[in-house]
């Protein structure tokens, strides 16, 4: 099984030279640590920053410079700052090449639920609905099953939706899946996870090709 860093590391291989990338909170944030050397990417933070740098050195934090998770960050040479309308303008206009976000549930037709659990305090969707409705290339990073062991890769989402028909790829602790033609297509499995286990833990329609790679 992949741990959080393993999932992030695998997703980092989808990040290509010259991409503008938006990283969500949680596992997606870790992806930045594994972007291969020798390629150049620019991170977008939807509160209005392109060219997000690492956390500041101790003592150099600036209250005016935060990311969408409200963490203090830094700029990099070539960074730019803009308002929230322009930030979502570039998202809506599909200028951002890759969006990586977490989810509670994903369905076999690419629907995603990641913002609300009925009966629990609802904090809000933030920018997630805008991102999933507009981004052309979205990868979901999540655990394959919830804490009770229920599959999060479903025929249909049971939680309130964030967006419909929008997710193309899911990377979980068990493997890598493409979503197309109404099914999850297993591309790679974690080295110590069997195809049978993935089958048993995937509630949605699962297509297993002749050859299934191993997550490197």
């Amino acid at each position: 099984m992949l741990d959080k860093n393993g999932i992030a590391k695998r997703i980092a291989r989808e990040v290509k030279d010259g991409m503008y990338v938006n990283l969500g909170i949680g596992i997606p944030t870790l992806v930045a640590n594994y972007v291969p050397s020798g390629i150049e990417v620019i991170l977008q933070s939807e509160n209005g920053l392109l060219g997000m740098g690492p956390f500041p050195w101790d003592g150099e934090e600036d209250a005016d410079l935060i990311n969408a998770g409200k963490q203090t960050v830094t700029t990099l040479p070539g960074s730019s700052i803009f308002d929230s309308a322009m930030s979502f303008g570039m998202i809506r206009a599909q200028k951002v090449d890759l969006t990586i976000l977490g989810a509670m549930e994903v369905s076999e037709n690419g629907d995603i639920a990641n913002w609300k659990v009925p009966g629990k305090m609802v904090k809000g969707m933030g920018g997630a609905m805008d991102l999933v409705a507009s981004a052309k290339n979205i990868i979901v990073a999540m655990q394959h099953c919830d804490k009770a062991g229920n599959s999060k890769l479903l025929p249909q989402c049971t939680l309130p939706l964030t967006g419909i028909h929008c997710i193309q790829k899911v990377v979980t602790d068990l493997g890598v899946f493409d979503i197309k033609e109404g099914a999850f297509h297993l591309l790679e499995r974690a080295a110590d996870v069997s195809i049978e286990e993935i089958q048993a833990k995937t509630a949605g329609k699962l297509v297993i090709p002749e050859v299934v790679g191993i997550v490197q």
Binding site: F55, P56, D58, E61, A63, I66, T72, V73
Partner: peptide, 10 residues
């Protein structure tokens, strides 16, 4: 100018 999530590198 309070900081909500103070994240830094050592």
């Amino acid at each position: 100018k309070r900081i909500e999530q103070r994240t830094t590198r050592k």
